[in-house]
């Protein structure tokens, strides 16, 4: 194992994949400026600074991907993706289908989002569900340092367009990364971060940490929470979520993104349509508000689901069951 930050893990993934496959190129605003070692190792043709023009960065990636290259584009902050929507949604997501399968679009669009930097709503907006709703695209949003590396490498090798979101608050976190030659994490596989039989907490990105804190607090009360980190939002690992729900019968879906038509709503729908018979309590969604991200630290933090809110939700779901256990514990 090697200890490193998310930022370093992303850089390692890029360097390794560029070394492995000469069709991989890195394109974006400042990629050549900030990643000098990649320029030295792979040349200016494969590490390209661009004009500040997200639409043409993304469009160029789509054209290049259809023509045999495997571009990775850095669009910096997720709200800038709205300028790139035509290329990503209308071209990359649809033209394979509309062409009857003639073309492949192996590209990765990286961007950052999430509270923690006090940058406000035009740099912080969790748009992942919008892209999950668009056909033809895959969506990845890791939480651990090891996953940032392994999922980015897998995304670059995937033959489909992948949106790769980095939670800003996780950029400088440290974690262990396996020292194997090729640390790959397959897209579409959730991770069970903590095993428990009483309630299932499902999340991704920074709110996985919130769920783990909540699970710790719940354990002190004798409640065993299972914590699932989706890692990939599309394709969604329904099997892992359903398996857990069949065991616990209770679901709390936690996202930083707002609730309406979001991933938490999708998880709730999954629970009631596919595991209704196993449910022992109504599903709870804990999400950010339907409001743009504020810059003030206090307001930014107020928009985030907290461990306390998760604990409270679980206590509400368990209701009498908690009381019975507490009574048993004292006898």
């Amino acid at each position: 194992m090697s200890r490193m930050t998310t930022e370093q893990a992303i850089h390692q993934a890029l360097a390794e994949e560029m070394q492995r496959d000469e069709r991989v190129l890195l394109v974006g605003e400042g990629v050549a400026t900030k990643r000098g070692d990649l320029v030295r190792n792979f040349g200016t043709a494969r590490v390209r600074n661009t004009p500040l023009a997200e639409a043409i960065i993304a469009g160029t990636a789509v054209g290049a991907a259809a023509s045999g290259l495997r571009p990775v584009i850095d669009l910096l902050f997720a709200p800038f993706l709205t300028y790139a929507m035509d290329a990503l949604v209308n071209s990359a997501g649809k033209l394979r289908y509309l062409s009857g399968g003639q073309f492949e679009f192996p590209l990765v669009a990286m961007s950052m989002t999430g509270s923690g930097w006090c940058v406000g709503a035009q740099h912080n907006h969790n748009l992942e569900a919008m892209f999950a709703h668009a056909p033809g695209l895959k969506v990845v949003m890791p939480s651990t340092v090891a996953d940032f590396k392994g999922l980015l490498k897998a995304a670059i090798r995937d033959d489909n367009p992948v949106l790769f979101f980095t939670d800003l608050a996780l950029l400088h976190q440290e974690g262990e990364v396996p020292d194997v030659a090729d640390h790959l994490v397959p897209l579409g596989q959730a991770a069970v971060r903590r095993v428990g039989a009483d309630v299932t907490l499902v999340s991704y990105a920074k709110t996985v940490g919130v769920c783990l804190q909540a699970a710790e607090q719940l354990q002190a009360q004798g409640i065993a929470a299972e914590v699932i980190d989706l890692r990939t939002l599309k394709p969604l690992d329904e099997a892992t979520v359903l398996r857990s729900l069949r065991k616990t019968g209770r679901l709390v879906a936690v996202t930083e993104a707002s609730g309406l038509c979001g991933m938490a709503a999708e998880l709730a729908a999954l629970a009631v349509t596919r595991a209704f018979d196993a449910l022992r309590a109504p599903v709870v969604r804990l999400t950010g508000p339907d409001a743009p991200g504020a810059s003030s630290w206090v307001l930014e933090q107020a928009a985030l689901p907290t461990a306390e809110a998760v604990v409270e939700a679980v206590q509400g779901m368990l209701g009498d069951a908690v009381v019975v256990r507490e009574a048993l514990a004292t006898t």
Binding site: I56, G59, V62, P71, A87, S91
Partner: peptide
């Protein structure tokens, strides 16, 4: 790469030429 989004073809053309 035919796009019916007016300008879509222009967005993708530089990538095809780059390849």
């Amino acid at each position: 790469l035919t796009s019916t989004i007016v300008g879509g073809e222009l967005s993708m053309a530089p990538g095809v030429a780059l390849a």
